[in-house]
Design a protein around this nucleic acid. Structure first.
Lengths: 208, 208
DNA sequence: TGATATATTGAATTTTTATTCAATATATCA
DNA sequence: TGATATATTGAATAAAAATTCAATATATCA
């Protein structure tokens, strides 16, 4: 016998992870089509041929990464939904957390950028398009429901909750994309500017 | 003699315009790298070879388009700057106008999307990168100055005007990119949600 | 009408990139 | 240590795309 099954499996997983990271780096930097197999292999420090031992094609890696990225954003939105605080507080907290993440997490920016790239081209693999179709709206729906609850509670401004959710996510996305390409860190972002879009302020409550 | 100089020149300009439009359509749809010369030629209804009569390469078309797109956004920001109204009003008006444009102008969405794509890849032609480097910040600077003036005037909230300008443009950008890929028109956007991020509201003034 | 300059075509060629594959290396177990 | 299964390499091949170019079409003017 040669290596045991488990050992090989473990090697495979580690190596695959290395390829995934290399591919993510390159895709985010250059985009799916500008990235050559050679670029990924070089980034991962392996020969081109070996890549095909782990993935059947460049597209397959891309689909794998997109799926992961979408799942991450869905998870994040669920974790906000499931918090045991009031709806208005959820929006406030989520924005605070998201702004902080934009300022400090490279991984988060990469995730946003990958999804944005993918949503921006009809030339991506069909499978990736299906995944986006299926998963991309979930965070929008989650926020929409929280907005609606907040309106009932009286902490969120009036207006179509669908629209509020669109403003919520597109603002975050726009910021993430800006930060992912401008590594200007001189400006400190204050999440309260964003949250003032949605939250009814104390002053007004006091007025009543 | 054959055709006159002017006639040929006119034909060239018209044809070139046709190619530019076709290229813009394809770039926006697929991205620079996924778009093949063949795609542009087919979209313009001409043979591949003819394209090289007008442009030396795919990259050259891209640079031409990016330059145009950047100039358009700069022009738009200047037109706001030069209006004869108060700073707070400028911000309100610009947002109202931008939201309306997002909802109604395909061209504007294409422009945003092209710039976003270009800013998102290091693999675009050097010349395009230089143009972006040179021109992309101008609208940010214009809004920053207006925000600062509005703060002095007392109509714009406190906070680093650079930051306010970043929130301004990234929100608009995020929206434009969302709308450019989701042709869901069921939601009507209300610009006042965005403007409440920046403008001090009447109620508070009255309180003083 | 014929001469001619330029536009236009599409097949041939070149270049780039993806994919395959034969050869070699490596790690484990008997 | 040797047998063996799998990992790994990099050159060979295939596929796809960009670019060139010889041939042809077209519009104008003399």
């Amino acid at each position: 016998m040669a290596r045991t099954k488990e050992q090989n499996e473990k090697m495979r997983v580690t190596r695959k992870e290395k390829i995934r990271n290399a591919a993510l780096l390159q895709f985010v930097k250059q985009g799916l089509f500008a990235t050559r197999i050679q670029d990924i292999a070089a980034e991962a420090g392996i020969a081109q041929g070996l890549l095909y031992h782990y993935y059947a094609s460049k597209d397959e890696i891309f689909v794998d990464l997109i799926n992961d990225a979408l799942d991450k954003t869905i998870e994040a939105s669920y974790s906000v939904r499931d918090m045991e605080i009031d709806p208005g507080e959820k929006i406030r907290f989520a924005l605070e957390r998201l702004i902080d993440t934009i300022e400090n997490s490279r991984t988060f920016l990469d995730t946003c950028r990958l999804i944005s790239q993918a949503s921006n081209s009809t030339a991506i693999p069909q499978e990736a398009r299906d995944l986006i179709q299926e998963k991309r709206n979930i965070p929008y729906q989650v926020i929409e429901i929280i907005m609606e609850a907040g309106q009932k509670e009286g902490t969120i401004i009036a207006g179509d909750p669908k629209m509020l959710s669109i403003f919520f996510w597109t603002s975050i996305n726009g910021l993430a994309i800006y930060y992912s390409t401008n590594n200007n860190r001189e400006v400190k972002l204050d999440y309260r500017v964003l949250s003032s879009m949605f939250l009814i302020e104390r002053e007004r409550e006091v007025e009543k």
